[in-house]
Structures are given as structure tokens and as C-alpha cells.
Computed example of a mutant assay.
Amino acid sequence: MESKVEKLEADVHIKAPAKKFYDVLSSRTHHLANVCPDKVHAIDLHEGEWGSHGSIIIWNYVHDGKKCVAKEMVEMDKENYKMTFNVLEGDLLEDYKSFRFLMELLPQEEGTIVHWTLEYEKRKGHSPDPHTLLQFDIDMTKQVDDHLAAQPDNTTN
């Protein structure tokens, strides 16, 4: 059976400006453990620098009640508020041959639309579609937005 890349997508409307939200996910990714402690236990820099294209980070997170790890290479398009997290190693690759999280921020008159796309190739036909991972991203997005709303305008951490 030939595998194919499948997609799941979702839009989340947030109050935060795109620049502020992008800054947290690109340059301050490690702060997600403080913002979403129920989901993210730690994010460590493995190679490169925070906020730099091609850096490699390691996520320690909880998914479906299980502690998981993902080593990811980050691609950034700062001008267009886009990021891609390419999974290199970790628990996700038990069920999937490849897995990518794509995030695109679409500035609105009020707030921002966060567009998440999960691209994945199943290892086996019965591997699950990652609906719970998409919900994880949606919930994390809302938690970051709530965190930013509680901050003074001059800071994001």
C-alpha cells in the first residue's frame, strides 16, 4: 500500500496581535511550559538559537494522558508569520512516517486567525488520524492568547 500525505486543519481566532503571538511561538517557545504546564513540560533547544530558522528543539509534552517527546526542526517565515515544525524523532513517528505542524497567522482588524495544518503520513492504514493533536494545538493556542491578554503591552513573557 502506497502511503499518502494527509492533512487536518483548524482556525482559531485569538485576541492577540499576530506579531505578539508569533514572538512567543518562535523566539520564546521554551516559555510554553510556563504558559501551558498541563500540556507542555519542557521545550529545550537542541541545536541553533531560539527564533532562528533551522533550529532543532525537543518538546516534552502530554498527549492523551501519555508523556511524549518530539524532536523537531523549525522553519520560519517571519515576514508572513508562518512556522513549520518538522518532526525528526519521537513518539509521533511510531504511528506516522512523517509529521509536520504548520502554523500561519492571519492578522485581522481585531486579533488574529491562527491557522493550524497537520500534515502526516500514516505508517499503517489503521494508524489514527491525529484529531487529538489538532485539539492540543487549538487548546495551546487559546492558553497562549489568554496569557498574552493578561500581560502588559510591553512584554510577552
Rank of each mutant, 00 (worst) to 15 (best):
S52N: 09
L106E: 12
K66Q: 08
F101M: 12
G54P: 10
E49S: 13
H63T: 07
V74I: 13
W59D: 08
S98G: 14
R100T: 13
C68T: 05
N80G: 11
K78C: 15
Y81I: 04
H53Q: 10
W59V: 07
W50E: 09
L93P: 06
I57N: 14
S55Y: 00
S98Y: 06
D77G: 07
E104V: 06
A70P: 03
E89T: 02
V62M: 08
M73S: 15
H53M: 06
M83D: 00
G51Y: 01
G48Q: 02
N86G: 05
W50G: 12
I56K: 11
E72P: 09
K71M: 11
I57Y: 06
E72V: 01
H53P: 03
R100A: 14
D64I: 10
E110R: 11
Y61D: 03
I58V: 13
K71E: 09
G54F: 11
Y81T: 02
M83E: 10
A70G: 11
S98V: 02
F101Q: 11
L92A: 10
G65T: 01
R100Q: 14
I56N: 05
N80R: 03
K78L: 10
L106H: 12
L93G: 02
L92M: 12
M76N: 13
S55L: 01
A70H: 05
K66G: 00
W59T: 02
V114N: 07
G65M: 04
F101H: 15
C68E: 06
I113W: 02
Y96E: 00
K78P: 14
M73F: 07
I57K: 14
D95C: 08
N60E: 12
H63M: 13
G48I: 07
D95R: 02
L102Q: 15
N60D: 12
A70V: 02
S55K: 01
I113T: 10
S52G: 05
Y81C: 03
D64F: 07
L92K: 03
S55N: 12
K97C: 14
D91Q: 06
W59A: 07
Q108P: 01
T112M: 08
